[in-house]
Every structure is written in structure tokens, then in C-alpha cells.
Amino acid sequence: MSERAHHRPTAPGNHFFEAISSGVDPAELQEAADRAATLLVRGAHDSGDDAVAERLLHLADTEGIETIAEVWSASAGDSLAGCLWRLFLLRSWVYADPAGVAHQFEAGRAAAPVARVVAGVADPPGPDELKAMIDQVLRGIARGDFADVLFRASAFARVVATGRAGLPTTSEQEVARMLALAEQLEAAGHLELAHGLA
């Protein structure tokens, strides 16, 4: 019988007690967020129902991105909940500024040809084409392979990050944020292929 090493538990910080006093247990909230994400991704895919795909696509429209943020924004990038948050955030951004996004994508597509092809945006990539592409990607949660969804979203973010890097109006921080999003989604895609995304 092997002896297990004893680790002293880490004392919770002030935020833990603030959440408890407000009636919300952070562990229960995270568990609920994870369970909801699992039901949405795995349940929607297993349903094979186009209506489910459309409801999932418009979840941020009907519930509000703020509501989704409250549930999933604190989730790690290597979790289903964290992936859903990043995907819905990406869609909300495209819909909020389709012309600006199209400009950034156009600026990056020549320098990131492989990512451009993986993203699957129609040529030329105008605002309507980008909205159609991001919707098609999110419909893939229910209709396709979730790893493909993550890789396409990652490729799209990578092209945009490349475009941002070449535009004088974009800060290094904005480039870094989009590149980090691309890398998180790509890493999650590989995790999904290895059946490790939960």
C-alpha cells in the first residue's frame, strides 16, 4: 500500500467568501456552467436536428452575450464551457462590426494563406461573407465535428490577428488578444481530437 503525500489545503481568497455571502457558491456555478456546455455541445450534436442547430446559433441573440458571459466567461480555454464562450464572443464581435472585421481579415489573408483556407471564408471576404462563415462555423457544433468548429474558428482568428499586425490603427495588445484566442481554440481542437475536452 503506497502512502499518499499530504498537501495542506490552500486557503480561499476574499472573492470566495464574497461569492458565498452573496448566495452563489463558485464551485456550484462552475459545475452548472460545465454541465450546460456539455449538454449544448454533446446533446446538440447527437440530436441531428436542424432546429437545435439554429437555436444554438442564436443563443447569444436570445439570451444576450452578457448572460452567456456570466455563465462561461471564467471557464478555462481547455473546457467545453470556455470554448463556447470564445465562439459566441467571436460571433458577437463579427456581428457588431462586420465591416471592420472584414477589413482586418482582408489585411491578413495574403500573409496567412493556410489559415484563410481552413477558416473557409468566401472570396472576397466582405461583411456578409464573414457573418455567413461564423454562422456556418457555429452551426457545426450541432451538425459536424466539434474539433473542426474549433480549428475553423482558430484559423479565422489567426488571419484576423495577422491582419491586425499589419494595420497601423491596431495596438499590439489587440493583436496579442486575437492571437491568444486563435491559439486557445486550436489547442482545444487538438484536445477534442484526443477526447480530452470536457
Rank of each mutant, 00 (worst) to 15 (best):
E3L: 14
E3K: 08
A5H: 10
H7Y: 13
R8C: 06
P9C: 07
P9I: 00
P12V: 07
G13W: 06
E18F: 12
S21K: 10
S22D: 14
G23A: 06
D25P: 07
A27N: 05
E31F: 14
R35F: 15
A37L: 08
G43A: 04
S47Q: 09
G48I: 08
D49C: 08
D49K: 01
D50A: 13
A51H: 12
V52M: 10
A53K: 06
E54C: 07
L56R: 01
H58M: 04
D61E: 14
D61H: 08
D61K: 05
E63V: 05
G64L: 07
I65E: 09
T67D: 13
W72I: 00
D78Q: 08
D78G: 04
S79T: 15
S79D: 10
G82V: 02
C83Y: 00
L87M: 06
L90Q: 02
L90T: 01
S92Q: 14
W93Y: 13
W93N: 07
V94M: 05
D97K: 06
D97H: 07
D97A: 11
P98D: 04
G100Y: 11
Q104N: 11
E106R: 08
E106H: 13
A115N: 13
R116P: 04
R116A: 15
R116D: 13
V117I: 13
V117P: 03
V118G: 10
A119V: 12
A119Y: 12
A122D: 15
D123Q: 09
P124T: 04
D128Y: 11
D128A: 13
D128P: 08
E129I: 01
K131R: 15
V137A: 01
G140A: 04
G140I: 01
G144I: 03
D145M: 00
A147L: 05
R152N: 06
R152Y: 08
A155D: 11
F156S: 01
F156I: 03
V159C: 11
A161R: 01
A161Q: 06
T162Y: 05
L167P: 02
L167R: 05
L167M: 14
T169H: 13
T170E: 15
E172Y: 10
E174H: 11
A176E: 11
A176K: 03
L179A: 11
L181K: 00
L181F: 01
A182N: 09
A187N: 08
G189S: 00
L191S: 04
L197N: 03
A198G: 12
